Amino acid sequence: MGDHQEKEALFDALVEAAKALGNGRRAELIDVLAQGERPVDELAAEIHQSLANTSQHLQRLLRAGLVCSRRSGTRVYYSVASPAVERLWRALRETAEAHVGELGDLVRAYIGERDQLGMITRDELRRRLREGDVVVLDVRPQPEYDAGHIPGALSLPVADLKSRLREIPQGSEIVAYCRGPYCLYADDAVRVLTGEGRRAARLEEGFPEWKEEGLPVEQSAT
């Protein structure tokens, strides 16, 4: 039978993953990597940190076993270690939403009010896709679309949306999606589209939640 010292060592090891996530920038990295593999320089740009700081955060996640890395030429690519890491991040987020009182104010301060945005649930989108009466836009960066996307979705990063509006069929209702409930890409896309007189809504959640439900996913040929 183990003694209490061994039990303490076990429980210390069990919380190592939580300790690694106990930093906002590292949580941001997991949020981005849930979309697909990315190189260090792109990750640094995504979280607005220096290359050195981003590398340090990634090394901490690597030591905790939450991410994997590989080298291709001069670039180092990172990815989440398994779907369990994505589930851990989602559970942490949902727990905070349920129990951290001031989180609602922080969310509203960041994303603003969504009352005027059309919203569509995952189940409703599935139904509309079966009926073929909706155009789905993936407004995340191109590498994330290539790593995995909702089947039939058009890749139209939000930064390019205004210049590429003509690529979206006229008269169709549009559903935009991005990284998840705290991602603003889809919000911005819906505002641009409705400002141009198009009918548009955003998916309530994002691609990671779609994938986690075991729904169909496509990857781009590379």
Rank of each mutant, 00 (worst) to 15 (best):
V217L: 07
E124W: 10
R122S: 15
L103H: 03
R128A: 14
H99Y: 13
R199V: 14
R202E: 10
I150L: 12
E212W: 02
Q170W: 08
E209D: 15
E124N: 09
Y185D: 07
L129H: 06
D133K: 05
E173A: 14
Y177M: 08
P157T: 01
L215Q: 10
I111R: 14
P141R: 02
E167N: 08
D123N: 15
T95D: 10
R191C: 05
A96M: 13
L103T: 05
A200F: 10
R108D: 08
G101H: 07
Y185I: 05
D188A: 15
F207P: 02
V107D: 07
R164H: 15
G101M: 09
E113P: 04
L154M: 15
P169G: 09
L156T: 08
E167Q: 15
V190Q: 06
Y145G: 06
I120Y: 03
E196T: 00
Y177E: 05
E167C: 02
D187Y: 03
D146M: 12
T194N: 00
E213F: 13
G101K: 13
A189G: 08
E212Q: 15
L193C: 09
R198I: 07
L165S: 11
R126F: 10
M119Q: 15
E167A: 12
R114C: 01
I120H: 10
D187C: 08
V158M: 04
V175L: 03
T95Y: 12
V139W: 06
D115F: 04
R199S: 15
L117I: 12
R179Y: 11
R128N: 02
G152N: 01
A176G: 05
D138E: 09
R199Y: 03
V190P: 06
E204H: 07
L184I: 11
A201C: 09
G148S: 10
V217D: 00
D146P: 01
C183G: 00
P151G: 03
V217K: 08
P169N: 01
